[in-house]
Each structure stands twice: as structure tokens, then as C-alpha cells.
Design a protein around this nucleic acid. Sequence first.
DNA 1: AAACAGACCAACCGCAACTAT
DNA 2: GATAGTTGCGGTTGGTCTGTT
Length: 486
Amino acid sequence: MERRSPGAALLASSSPEEEEEKSAAAEEGRHAAMAAAEQQQEEEDEAAVPVALKKGPWTTSEDAMLVDHVRRHGEGNWNAVQRLTGLLRCGKSCRLRWTNHLRPNLKKGSFSPDEELLIAQLHASSATSGPAWPPILLQLLDVTDWWCCVLSCLRSVQLPGRTDNEIKNYWNTMTKRRQRAGLPVYPPEVQLQLALSNSKRCRFDEFSNVQALDAAASAAGYTSSRPAPLDLARQLAATSQMVQFLSSPPPAFSAPASPWPAARPFARNAQFFQFAAHHSSAVSPSTPMHPADLSLGYGGGVRAGAEQSRLAPLSPASHGPRVLELPSNQFLQPMPPASAAAAGGGAAALLPDHHQHQNLNAESLEKMLQELHDAIKVDPSPAASGGGGGVLERRHGGGGENKSGGQHRDDDMDTLFDMMIPTLNAPAAAATTNHSGSTSQHSNDDQEPSAVDLAVDLQATGGASSSAQDWGLDGVCQWSNMSRIC
DNA sequence: AAACAGACCAACCGCAACTAT
DNA sequence: GATAGTTGCGGTTGGTCTGTT
């Protein structure tokens, strides 16, 4: 039951001729709109009467005006839309319309089993850690928010093209349905995840009891149409690659003080990686944000000490032609390989070759990650560690010395590697266990992967998100995927 | 065929957090 | 530090579609 909005139809791909016609029509409409807007502005100035903003469903012409506005000015500053285009919609409504319907690379249609499971996992973690769908691994590992942000890179590709609203609606509907049916909201593997989040010091072999989980899944009413369970284990395995890479060589690793507040970690993360052109708050490639800067921004909004503690550019390529941030590069603007790699984050590095996007240069990605690793080895400045110890210190009792926070970070990292490294050291056996167990339970399931390799099987971790068409749009890596989970 | 209920989804609202001035 | 503007998130509502009776 897929219903396409007028806006979706507006953005649907078509022939070049049609595109030209559309473009011309849009241009014409834009001029008319601009003229109307100017006239309206004059009238408003004269009358000084507040304009009655329109509510309710959007029309195609309104969509066209909004799309054209974003095409010209980029995302952000939504309240200017009404002023610049004459669109009788409040900025909030414009943002919502763009985000949920007009934005390119939106994924419509029903959720796949992979996505459903991921949503359950993400929701389960948010149930224990607060709002904003935090990374599931944060609760499992209790690592610093810095790591939270790194791991968010992985999560960002899990549900590409899905909007908050879409996920929210799905979740509300699904939970209502399941509760009405007397079934548990979370699938068994997510319940296990919740249990493990309490124990924290879980080990990989705790994930290997696939048959028991599948039995529980059947008992709980989850059908065999979903993929093999324990994708969480694969996520952990895939994530551990990222973690291990970033932390190599492990003894020298030193994570900076937690730079971001616990809430909305991913918004911060997106800012960290995006390049600015329009948005005032974005980070330009020539002025990369050091975590310490951000830590100073925590609470006080100050970026003192930025000059002496600048993070080296993630990649030399990031000095290349300036690319627009989110809204603009979605309009098929080329992206430097390193930028594309950054957009892909660690997850892209974990993609099997046949799943990697053509623009994702493995070497540049590796280089970027190495630079990132080097950057996070930089000791946080006193100001940063003192003022921005922030989340970590609060998590561990708050107000502690920097040294104390560092010790906690060490503990966190011990926990992290204690869990992660065995995943890498013994992936084959575990994969075999997982695979065989799953196959026995899902022998009729066409979605069962033909070969399970914990070290590289990101397809399982990201579900449908790992396909090339989901990751890229006509050769452009989807930066919007970095801004949120959907 | 009509009426009804449930599901789905777009849109709005209120609040909180963040940022710039 | 105060304030206004901007943005994001979660809850909620109302319209539309679909399946059932």
C-alpha cells in the first residue's frame, strides 16, 4: 500500500527532456513566485499585517517552490523560505516537508525485516539511555561519547532514506499491533541485547546460542521471514573492525574527553564530518573541528583554544573543490573521494568490495581513518578536559579530574576491546556457529546469506542499506545519511 | 454496494536544546 | 549572561486507504 506524495512524484526521475521542461517550468514558476513574493512583501510592509500561514496538505506547486528554494539556497534557515519564496508555510512546516518527503534519496515503501530488527534494536537502546535513538553499542559498551560518535558512523548507514517520522509511525503502529496481539514488542535478540546491556561485560560466545533464540523468536510470534537472528553479533563484529582500525596500535590509543552531550550525539557527529557552504553552523573543510573544540562547546558554547588544538584535515582531498553540504550535494554534485569516504564513514570501509560504492576509494578512506586515529591521539587541552569532560565525567559520577576521566576511558576501552577483539580473533568459528544455527532455523528462508563472514559481512549489519543504490545516488555518496539514522 | 473498523501516513504542536547576537 | 531565532524530537491528530462484515 504505497502512496506517493506529490513531492515524491515531483522528484521522480524522468528523461532529460522532461527534466528540462521541469526545470524551465520551475524557473518560470520561481520567477513568478519571486515576483509574487516581492509584491507580497511590499504589501506586508505596507499593511504590517501578519500573513496567515497555510496548514494542511502540501500542493505540488508548494513542493516545487520549496524544492527550488532548497536547490538554490540549500537546507537550513527555513524561516527564510516564506520570506524568499512567498510560500505561505512556516519554516517548521517547510523543514518537515523537505525532510520527510522532498529530500532526495528518501526510501519509501514498507520496512524490510532487516530494518524492522534494526529499529527494534535502536529503540531498545533508546529505552535505556534516553531519546534520540542513540547507537545501540553505546549501551552495550558504555564507551565514551567520542566513541559513540565514531560508532554512529556505522549506524548512520543502517536505515538510509528513512525519516524519523516514518520510523516513528512504523514503531507506534507496530507496537500497538503487537501489544494488542499479546506479543512482546521486542524480538528475542533485542531482548537479549537489553539483558546484555545490563551486564555489559558480555562476550562474543554469548551471542552464539542461535537456536535458542530462534526458538524464542518463534514462540514470541516472529516469523521466519526475517533474516537470521543475531545480526547484532555481526554488527559487533563489523563495528569491531572499525574500532580496531581506529585504535591501532592499541597501546598508544588515547580517546579525547567526551566532546558531546549525551543527547543528540549524532547531530554532533554529522557536523563533525560535513562541509559547509550555506549553513552557518557547519564545519568547513579548511577549519576542521577538533573534538576539544566541541568539548568546549559543551555547556558553554565556546570554542576557545581551537587554534592551538586544531585537528588536522581529515584528508588532503578535503582541501579540494568545495562541495556543498547536505542539500546541495544531493543534487548530483561531485564529491571528492575522501569526502565520500568520510560520508561513508567506517561502515563503508567494512563493505565487501562488490558492495562498495564506486566513489568510495578504499585507500582514501583508510587514510582518512588513519588521520582520524592520529587526531584522537591528541591529548585534549586542559580547557577541553576540564570544562568538557562532560558526559564521561558525569556518567562516572561527575566533576572528576581529567586524570580520573582518563582512567575511566581506559576502563571503557578495556571493556571495549575485551568484547571486540575476541570477535575478530575468532570470527570464523563463531560465524560457522551462527550460520549453521541460523540455517537450521531458516532453511526455507531465501534471505539467508550464502556466506557469512563476520569480519566483512556488513550487509547483515546494515540490512538493505548496504546495497549500492541505497548508499549512493547516481554516483554521489549520500551525506544526508550521516545526519540521522534515516 | 454500503458501512464500519483498523491501519497507515502526513502534518501539526509543544517542548527542549542549540546557536548567534 | 540574556535574548531571539533556529532546529530537532516525541507525541498527537486527522485524513485516506484497505479489508471485513
